[in-house]
Simulated assay, not measured.
Amino acid sequence: MRVDAVLGVAVLLGSGVTAGVLFAVALSVLPALFAMPTATYVYAHKLLGRNWDPTMPAVVLSTTASATALAFVTDEPAPRALFAAAAVLLLGVSAVSHLANVPINRRVKAVTDPASLPPEWTDPRPLWRRWHLLRTGLALAALAANAVAVAGV
């Protein structure tokens, strides 16, 4: 089996999982979190985030590495450019997650008593949603770039 074929499957799986997870959160989880009273939201946020942290960074970064490798091993200029663009878009997903969403997650996880929030505490949901929608758009664009590139290889 050719290396580019194996990497092509990897970028499609990884970018599909990334875009799918982020899209599902935007479509269903976020509206549910916004409908909750603040104390319930804090409790739910803590439960929802437990298993994403070790998994999603590994998926995003391994997919970025696969797209980067394909940008170097692919001979055709158009797929090469698309794989490179997808890698940059996935790096954007990682950067937004690490620099914006994760610090907000840490702040929410630090709340010890959701029923008794400190007076200076501000609801992070609107800001978290904006950052999340940005990374979702980046992930969807990366999936599209990878799909077109794989189809053109």
Rank of each mutant, 00 (worst) to 15 (best):
V25E: 06
Y41F: 15
G137H: 02
V153E: 06
A19K: 05
G152C: 03
L30V: 15
K46E: 01
L47Q: 14
T18Y: 04
V25K: 06
G20D: 08
A85R: 08
P126F: 04
N51S: 10
A85Y: 07
H98I: 09
W121G: 08
S116R: 15
Y41W: 12
A35S: 15
L12S: 04
N51Q: 09
T64S: 04
A145D: 10
V73P: 01
V88I: 15
D75R: 12
A44V: 13
T38L: 14
A71N: 00
G49E: 05
R107F: 02
N146T: 15
A145I: 02
R106C: 01
S97L: 12
V9P: 03
V17F: 12
A147I: 06
A110I: 04
R106K: 13
N101A: 06
M56V: 08
P124T: 08
L117A: 03
L30P: 01
A110C: 09
V60Q: 07
V21W: 02
A144G: 12
T40H: 10
V11I: 11
V88W: 03
W121P: 08
S28F: 15
G16Q: 09
V108M: 02
A95C: 13
A71V: 02
V9F: 14
L99R: 14
S15L: 02
M1S: 11
N101V: 02
Y43T: 15
V153R: 13
F34N: 10
V153P: 01
T40W: 11
N101L: 14
L127G: 11
L143H: 09
M36L: 15
P124V: 03
L22P: 01
R50T: 09
A19V: 00
A78S: 08
F83T: 07
V102D: 06
T40I: 07
A26C: 06
W131K: 03
L7V: 00
A151Q: 04
V148E: 10
L70H: 06
P119R: 03
A58E: 03
W128I: 08
T112Q: 11
L143P: 04
A19T: 00
P103L: 11
L70I: 10
V21T: 11
R135Q: 12
T18R: 10
A139W: 01
T18E: 08
F34K: 14
A44T: 13
A5H: 09
G92E: 11
G137I: 10
A115W: 05
L7T: 00
R125Y: 01
V102Q: 04
G16P: 08
P31W: 13
D4K: 14
P103K: 07
R129Y: 09
S97F: 12
V111Q: 11
E76Y: 05
M36K: 03
D4S: 14
A147S: 15
L13R: 00
D75I: 01
A39Q: 09
G137C: 10
D113I: 05
L27F: 07
A141D: 05
K46Q: 15
P114H: 10
A151Y: 11
A71H: 00
G137M: 07
A10Q: 00
V21Y: 03
A147T: 15
L127D: 11
A142Q: 00
A35N: 08
V153K: 02
R107L: 06
W121H: 09
A69I: 05
A5L: 10
D123W: 00
L61A: 12
A81E: 04
T122M: 04
E120P: 01
T63C: 05
I104A: 06
